[in-house]
Computed example of a mutant assay.
Amino acid sequence: MLRSQGIPTKLVKGYKNDLKAYHAWNEVLLDNNWVIVDTTYDAALGKNKDNNMLKNSVEYNKIREY
């Protein structure tokens, strides 16, 4: 959806520190910086999420990006 609105976005695959399974997330270009947005992880947190969509890059190990 973001790409359809002209917002540069990447699909990224790899690992997140607290997950054992292979995982996917997005990187979005905001203010000339690539930031991690992980809606799958946020959805799993449910009501306990911290309301911060931007994630810390040290928690992610990128293997592939598209």
Rank of each mutant, 00 (worst) to 15 (best):
M1H: 06
M1P: 01
L2V: 03
L2D: 00
R3N: 03
Q5E: 09
Q5F: 08
G6E: 01
G6W: 03
I7D: 10
P8A: 14
P8I: 04
T9K: 07
T9F: 05
K10E: 02
L11V: 12
L11H: 07
L11K: 11
L11I: 10
V12C: 11
K13G: 10
K13N: 08
G14H: 10
G14W: 12
Y15W: 14
Y15N: 09
Y15F: 15
K16F: 11
K16H: 13
N17C: 05
D18E: 12
D18T: 11
L19W: 11
L19P: 01
K20S: 15
K20P: 07
A21D: 15
A21V: 10
Y22Q: 07
H23A: 11
H23F: 10
H23E: 12
H23L: 13
A24L: 08
A24M: 14
W25Q: 10
V28I: 15
V28T: 13
V28F: 11
V28N: 13
L29G: 07
L30K: 14
D31P: 00
D31S: 13
N32Y: 04
W34L: 07
V35A: 05
I36N: 00
V37G: 03
D38V: 03
T39H: 01
T39E: 01
T40M: 05
T40W: 13
T40I: 10
Y41S: 11
Y41G: 06
D42T: 11
D42S: 08
D42K: 04
A43N: 09
A44H: 04
L45E: 15
L45D: 10
L45P: 00
K47T: 11
N48H: 14
K49S: 13
K49Y: 14
D50T: 04
N51C: 06
N51K: 11
N51G: 02
N52S: 09
N52G: 02
N52T: 07
M53F: 13
M53A: 14
M53H: 12
M53Y: 12
L54H: 05
K55G: 02
K55R: 15
N56T: 01
N56Q: 00
S57R: 14
S57E: 05
S57W: 06
V58N: 12
N61K: 15
N61A: 09
K62L: 08
I63C: 08
I63G: 04
I63V: 15
E65R: 09
Y66V: 12
Y66L: 10
Y66H: 07
Y66K: 08
